[in-house]
């Protein structure tokens, strides 16, 4: 889930922080700038791991700020493709399940990555999986199935998912658009980083599905063998 990224930056230390040890002040400055931010192609920054190289502080004309050239290591959240992670179901919509891991919640499981056959139950606002249903059954019949055989993916449940892909979006805010003197409302911005996950395989999905499931384990082993 977590990586170490090496970054280079120039950091200014304000005179009010001259009383603090320079490394502490620099780490605080860097954390202020990077913590809980998404860096394009790096991931979600957690905190500074350590400083690798710090140049000499220089004061430039104009402000009393001491500027340092710093090379540092940063802890970033960016699961690699095919990594298995545990997450909590945040919400379900007709086309997607949204997962959360507390500090990050742009994790999505689209319908194509749900265990087959599964369907969305609009009454429960949750997806369910019918492990016993035959492959050729359609969605209409799935919704007619017996409620006891359905395995729901309810909000708040812990699921095990595999990371399929991740995307970064760097949308520019752009100038405000005005048509005939009226400001046009902009469409909501995409989240800058999103992860798409899958629950298709054996062992993925609700963690409770796979507890005490020796028979399924054997099946899985047989399938592979």
């Amino acid at each position: 889930m977590f990586n170490l990224a090496i970054l280079k930056d120039t950091v200014g230390v304000h005179p009010s922080n001259f009383g603090i040890a320079p490394d502490t002040a620099l780490i605080a400055e860097l954390n202020k700038k990077y913590a809980n931010r998404i860096l394009h192609d790096v991931g979600l920054c957690m905190c500074v791991f350590d400083l690798t190289q710090v140049g000499e502080g220089k004061v430039r004309y104009g402000d009393g700020i001491l500027y340092y050239k710093v090379v540092f290591r940063l802890v970033a959240f960016r699961p690699f493709r095919s990594e298995v992670i545990l997450a909590k179901v945040k919400s379900s919509a007709e086309d997607v399940i949204r997962l959360s891991i507390g500090f990050f919640d742009d994790i999505y499981v689209p319908t194509i990555y749900l265990p087959h056959p599964s369907a969305f139950d609009p009454n429960e606002r949750a997806f369910f999986w019918l492990p016993e249903a035959a492959e050729e059954e359609g969605h209409v019949e799935l919704l007619d199935s017996d409620k006891d055989t359905r395995m729901y993916i309810d909000t708040g449940e812990i699921v095990r998912v595999r990371v399929e892909s991740d995307e970064f979006f760097d949308d520019e805010p752009g100038p405000p658009q005005v048509t005939e003197g009226i400001q046009v409302k902009k469409e909501p911005r995409r989240s800058p980083y999103r992860i798409v996950c899958s629950m298709v395989e054996q062992g993925l999905g609700n963690t409770s599905w796979w507890e005490n499931s020796q028979a399924l384990e054997d099946d899985a082993a047989m399938e592979e063998g």
């Binding site: 977590f2 090496i6 970054l7 860096l39």
Partner: peptide
């Protein structure tokens, strides 16, 4: 800001 290496090492959750 400059990214020298986006993934220099992997860290465990612990």
């Amino acid at each position: 800001m400059e990214v020298v290496n986006a993934r220099s090492a992997l860290l465990s959750n612990y």
